[in-house]
Design a protein around this nucleic acid. Structure first.
Lengths: 205, 205
DNA sequence: TGAAATATGTCAATAACACTGACATAAACC
DNA sequence: GGTTTATGTCAGTGTTATTGACATATTTCA
């Protein structure tokens, strides 16, 4: 990420670097989380994307493979309900995965209309590779002290976080969720995101 | 969501309903978070989608409008870097938003090559509507006691969560991040997600 | 048993969102 | 004045999704 913040921003963002993100009173406490969720998810799906590209698969294939791997015997209907797509969309990617021997279908025993889905050895292997990179990111986000996730709120002030109380520290989960999502972002880009969000915080002050 | 879990699952999922999600020792502590992130994000973008559809806009329009609204004066290059798309992709949606008077471009003052982006009144209004529904979800996720977000870890056991310690309660942020994401899921579907994930937990036990 | 509902599969057309590659213009930089 | 930078645009393509219609096998139930 190469946001030329120092050039384009008003120019006084120097010490904000490592400061915690602070919300001005004009905003809801969850506003930062909305953007952090976007950035976290962006990087979260970026890891597997690189692996999938080598196999000629996309995110849709990943989602199917993931859920079939983790919930063996899943039916088509269940999968459709999880993924929230149409059966036509599912069929396209499922066909790929079956033809290339990553997933197999078995006729249901109690209800022979159902097609129970299972991963083959190949499928399990790929699913494992994919979940590994994602687990690594999540685990690091939960564990790395530098990422500040350990500064979990000590349960003081459990009374909601709805009002615009503008505090920057622990209030009932805000901070830990915020830190978790921030830590999910690619390390080299975390500073850029902090810088960007600090820019908004300042302009609204 | 209408996963017919009771029908299709082995049939013994009765008391799991309100239980906290428990990870078997064979898995990484972040494994649940991977799926929760998927479900949370799915519902998170679902709210604005419904509004956007009424305007004939999609998610791409939303993202552009959101960032321009919150960071007025953003340049094209900055936006491209935030969204991680090509300028061709950006231009398609940006053109829509400009033509329909949601966003305006102003030539940069210090660098006249730049096009600084700003929301019009219309743009701010729509962006406000969109952020409102998302803030509502996030705020509720942070505040609602029934969602269990208040059971934030009391900073006991700060020593990472990397090992497969299989505990279900507070260890350095795991629970609060998990509860936050779970609370982000559409309430009526939370039970279904819990049921699904419990299904895996059981089978691996 | 036979009609209705269910689970799945498939054909066809379309849309949203992304990509690559190539090329053009204006302004800044040196 | 030549190079780089910021932006815009044309053309073609790919992935993922959609709607609508229809087909098949199986289960359910009256």
């Amino acid at each position: 990420m190469t946001l030329p913040a120092t050039e384009n921003a008003p120019a006084e963002n120097t010490a904000v670097e490592n400061a915690a993100i602070e919300s001005p009173a004009t905003e809801s406490p969850g506003d930062d989380l909305i953007e952090l969720l976007f950035f976290a998810y962006r990087d979260f799906v970026g890891d597997p994307d690189r692996i999938l590209a080598q196999y000629g698969f996309g995110r849709a294939h990943h989602r199917v493979l993931h859920f079939v791997d983790r919930y063996p015997g899943l039916t088509i209907a269940e999968l459709l309900d999880i993924l929230r797509i149409t059966k036509q969309s599912l069929n396209r990617v499922l066909k790929d995965l079956i033809e290339q021997d990553y997933i197999v279908q078995k006729t249901g025993t109690s209800d022979r209309r159902q097609r129970l889905l299972f991963c083959t050895e190949r499928g399990t292997a790929l699913a494992g590779d994919l979940i590994r990179v994602q687990t690594r990111r999540v685990t690091r986000a939960l564990a790395d002290p530098e990422d500040g996730i350990l500064e979990v709120g000590t349960s003081e002030d459990k009374s909601s976080a709805s009002g615009a109380s503008s505090g920057k520290s622990s209030e009932g989960g805000t901070v830990s969720a915020q830190n978790f999502l921030l830590a999910m972002i690619e390390p080299e880009e975390r500073a850029t995101v902090r810088r960007l969000m600090a820019r908004r915080a300042r302009s609204a002050a």
